[in-house]
Design a protein around this nucleic acid. Structure first.
Lengths: 206, 206, 206, 206
DNA sequence: GATGAATGAGTATTCATTCAT
DNA sequence: GATGAATGAATACTCATTCAT
């Protein structure tokens, strides 16, 4: 949060290349993707990676940050939608599409990440909570469902399809639909366990 | 399948310690858990690990094998149950309980593992297919659900709760219930995507 | 053959230290010399070895390459000498001096080494063949001697003296002289076995 | 030299299997041949190897011992031969045949070996010295040749042919003949270096 | 005596990170 | 600012040797 003066043009270009390259490399190789490969893919020297991101983990955090921010923007926009049920459904669809593009599921391993991520994630959580509250009030989802539930279930469709070797890239739609059916009021059975109190945003559902 | 003569008493004890220690260590540290740490945890020398499991991957395979076998046994028993819907539900419950005990989700990263694993996994798949077929015929699950769907969704409850820092150990029950509601015929909406053809069992949903 | 831009000054210095240290270490400990020891002896970190030579074998190959190249250069120069007999003798002397400086006889154990080595070795073989042909035509060596014979016998003087614990460093001269006498036409007895067809240069007489 | 009571029948059989297996394995794999492989090849347990030979080096020593003893026996018998020149030639032939059967040239690496070996080797050296002295007195070898010279040159033919990939098993005969021609009085040129004083038999020309 | 299970020092190699150019 | 050379901790795996069975 040090008062970042704007980067020189080339530096900013490098930063972008790096984020893209890193996201690709991580998506392909998981957390073990090597900094050297990322640098090569970005067309810069290894040293440059560390000038921009003091640590491999910081690089990871930056990627996650971008992603969460983008998703949060979508969520906030949908808060004003006319049909709250459709809005929630749309939000989950966008979230899954985003995850599908680049599988960052391995992030689960990556422990706490940095504080900035936690902050942005907390924002996203707020947004989801509001989306869910509106949907619930509208009767679009069952009464016993919370924002936390949706946050947790949000990644399941992609997770689930990641096991299918040569899956259609849209297979997640099937499982999102099934899960969403489970969230609806119609035919709902009482739930055997209360929802988690709050997700402290230090962990990583995205 | 080499006609393994029964292990010496101490050797067999070591093998058990190793499997337990390795499962714990893998669960805590993921695939990068080091053989040295596993050995230390099991209270044996590093060399002993390799005597029992020529390769880190073989160790992993042994753990997975045990797990799948156990689960398959449960599934086969449930094939004879009176209520096919309850049987399927029971099966998913046992699967989740097993996964809850030790999280092996990192296995997703692991490549093919060995052939034995693939074989046993294929058996398990068969069992699940039969459980699902029976449940469907009984009207306990919707008509458009296949065995493959259930295999894929089976792990979702644990995956989802793994994001909650200090979750109640039974939280998965909540998400299994939601997902199972999504599988029921009541209130089902048509699914936007066909199910995957077949899971080739070289990959790792367990 | 990748268009290697010239190494940075320090890197090139390190490369030289490494080659020297490795040659010494190999000479003292044989093929089992450890990369760690080589690094220590060169005064660099272990990682630096692998930056310069991706593999222990590549390091070995580099050493061998240098040696063969140097010897070949001498041989080619001697092809123009006035007295072909003296030229051959001189060549064998230089070869033995080179080997005496650093004993690489352990190389016999080493497998194929890399293709570059094979290529350069084939060149050296050509050179020797020509030296021997000229000497034979001049009557300086017996008629039934081939280039292959000389290539094989070339290393014998050093091999032989390597058994003498505190030998004079010039002792090889004695055995080179004896062997060379065996190659002369005077007093030659017919040979009981034909010469080898061709040495395929994937093996390692140097 | 502890007053070895005669071995039990099976033990003695094991000892022989071991020596044979070890010689083969060493010949095929060099000094790095593993004790486990030797044991397997001999059809005994690994522990048995160490009961008979407290150390891998001791096993090696035992093999060498057998070999030297056998060769020495031949040498001593030839001391009484009618033609001292032929006797020396015959001796060198037998030595080369023996070495050809099983290549133990890697032994050079094997440092000092044990005292027993040194003792037996000293005997062999004596024998060779006497064979050479007789041959010299008879004019069968040049006057400036010593027993030490012959001991050293003795192994050269096998060494030299070990570089030829698919050599005829008798190729050594060619090089023994060349070297022997170099030892003859006819056409001998004066030698540029005095012979080594004495070979202290702690090193290993066989 | 024989066996093979256990041990741990040793090895090549990788990779995040630092720093001289 | 950018580069890539240097570093060394970490890792899977091997093998001579010891020792309980």
């Amino acid at each position: 949060m040090t008062s970042t003066r704007p980067l020189r043009a080339d530096a900013s270009r490098n930063r972008q290349s790096l984020l893209a390259a890193a996201a690709d490399e991580f998506a392909e190789r998981g957390l073990n993707a090597s900094v050297a490969d990322i640098a090569r893919r970005a067309g810069v020297g290894k040293g440059t990676v560390f000038r921009h991101f003091p640590t491999k983990d910081d690089l990871l955090a930056a990627i996650v940050l971008d992603r969460i921010d983008a998703l949060n923007a979508v969520g906030e926009r949908l808060l004003d939608a006319a049909d709250p049920g459709a809005a929630l459904s749309e939000f989950l669809t966008v979230a899954a599409e985003q995850r599908q593009q680049r599988d960052l599921s391995f992030l689960q391993e990556a422990g706490e990440l940095n504080a900035e991520v936690t902050r942005v994630r907390a924002q996203l959580f707020q947004t989801v909570h509001r989306l869910v509250d509106r949907a619930r009030e509208h009767g679009a989802v069952r009464a016993d469902i919370t924002g936390a539930d949706v946050i947790l279930l949000m990644c399941a469709p992609n997770y689930v399809t990641s096991y299918v070797p040569d899956a259609s890239p849209d297979l997640w739609q099937r499982y999102l639909a099934i899960i969403f059916d489970g969230l609806r009021p119609e035919g709902a059975h009482p739930l055997p366990h209360p929802p988690p109190m709050s997700l402290d945003a230090t962990h990583t559902p995205d």
